[in-house]
Computed example of a mutant assay.
Amino acid sequence: MTDRRRVCSLGEAPPGDESRPVRLADELTELARGLHDADAPDDVLREAVLAAIDLVPGTQAGSVTVLVGGGKRVEHKAASGTLPARVDAVMSEYGEGPCLDAVLERRIVRVDDMRRETRWPAFAPRAADLGALSMLAFPMFVKDGSFSALNLYAGDPGAFTDDAEHVGRLLAAHAAVAYSGAQREENLLAAIETRDLIGQAVGLLMERYSISSGRAFDTLVRFSRQANRKLRDVAAELIRDAEAGALR
């Protein structure tokens, strides 16, 4: 995992500051490299949260919300501290909040003062009590149907401006593409590993019972169904048992 902490906040642009768009482009280019160099999907999310704290004006903390299991379960990842973790837990408890709206409605959700918020009657008072008076939630959208959002928090009302929305939107777009790519790579590696495990298990069965590869594979599938376990897990156990027997 790369270290993004060397990036400094861009802050609000002073009037007539024509260099800021160039600096922002440079920072986002560096961020894109860091995200694509991350070792795993969760590393991408941690990189994105750290970058948001550095780059998005007003941000004090961040996290990522991911809907899994066909959108039936909420996972909170890469929380930068206790505030986002506690606020995200309240959102899960009540099933409402800016993060969920951003994910499900695929739009940016901004909260200027949680104490006066009426969109989430159960969530808002609890979040305000925890100290999250300002929030920004960005959908991390890619065409593969993933459901996630980058969530930013501040302890002061009115912490986020239109400029913060602009920077956060660009950052979230970079993070979404990198996260999707990391997931695909992880799934591909897992598929290759699964194929190799099944191949080894089939070879063991062929040798043990003097049967063809087709019959060996069918036998492995039958074991999997009878045990109600994944084929990969059955193959891995068969290989472990064979290795353990060879060491005796």
Rank of each mutant, 00 (worst) to 15 (best):
A164I: 04
S148A: 15
L220V: 01
M140T: 09
R222W: 11
T82D: 15
R222E: 14
E207H: 11
A149Y: 02
L231K: 03
A132E: 00
G70M: 11
V49H: 09
A132R: 02
M114S: 06
D88G: 10
G199T: 07
P14F: 07
L10K: 01
G81W: 04
P21K: 05
S63K: 00
V111R: 10
G181Y: 05
L170K: 07
V202N: 02
I198W: 01
L220C: 09
L133Y: 06
M1K: 03
L133R: 07
T161H: 10
T219N: 09
S19L: 14
R33Q: 11
E165V: 15
L55G: 05
H76V: 15
G70A: 09
L150S: 05
A127L: 07
I198P: 02
T29Y: 11
A236F: 01
A137T: 12
D196E: 14
T118E: 11
A236K: 15
L204D: 02
D88L: 06
D26P: 00
D156H: 13
A40L: 09
A124D: 06
T118D: 12
L45V: 06
L133P: 00
S146Q: 13
A236D: 11
R240F: 00
T29L: 11
L205P: 01
E243S: 10
P157Q: 08
G168E: 09
D156L: 12
D88K: 04
V142E: 14
V167W: 06
A38T: 11
E12H: 12
D101P: 06
A246Q: 13
D162M: 06
M114L: 14
D218C: 00
F160Q: 06
A242D: 15
L247Q: 14
S212Y: 01
Y209R: 12
G203T: 02
V22R: 15
D42H: 09
V68R: 15
L136I: 01
S224T: 11
V167Y: 08
G71K: 05
E207G: 13
E207Q: 14
A85T: 02
H166E: 14
P14V: 12
L220S: 03
G34Q: 08
V167H: 02
D54S: 15
T161P: 06
R6M: 10
L247A: 15
A235K: 01
P84V: 09
V202M: 02
R208W: 04
A175D: 06
G145C: 08
I211C: 08
R5V: 01
W120T: 01
T118R: 12
A124P: 06
A78Q: 01
L133Q: 03
L130Y: 05
V111N: 05
E207N: 12
R5F: 07
W120P: 06
A124N: 04
A48K: 04
V90I: 15
G245K: 11
G199K: 05
M114C: 06
S92Q: 14
E47T: 12
R222V: 06
L238F: 07
E237Y: 01
G16A: 09
D129E: 15
N187W: 11
D3P: 03
N228Y: 00
V44L: 04
P15R: 10
G181M: 12
A79E: 03
E105W: 02
Y179F: 14
L28W: 08
V103R: 04
E105I: 00
S212E: 03
I239K: 08
G16Q: 07
A173L: 07
I198C: 04
L100F: 01
A13F: 00
D37S: 13
G70W: 09
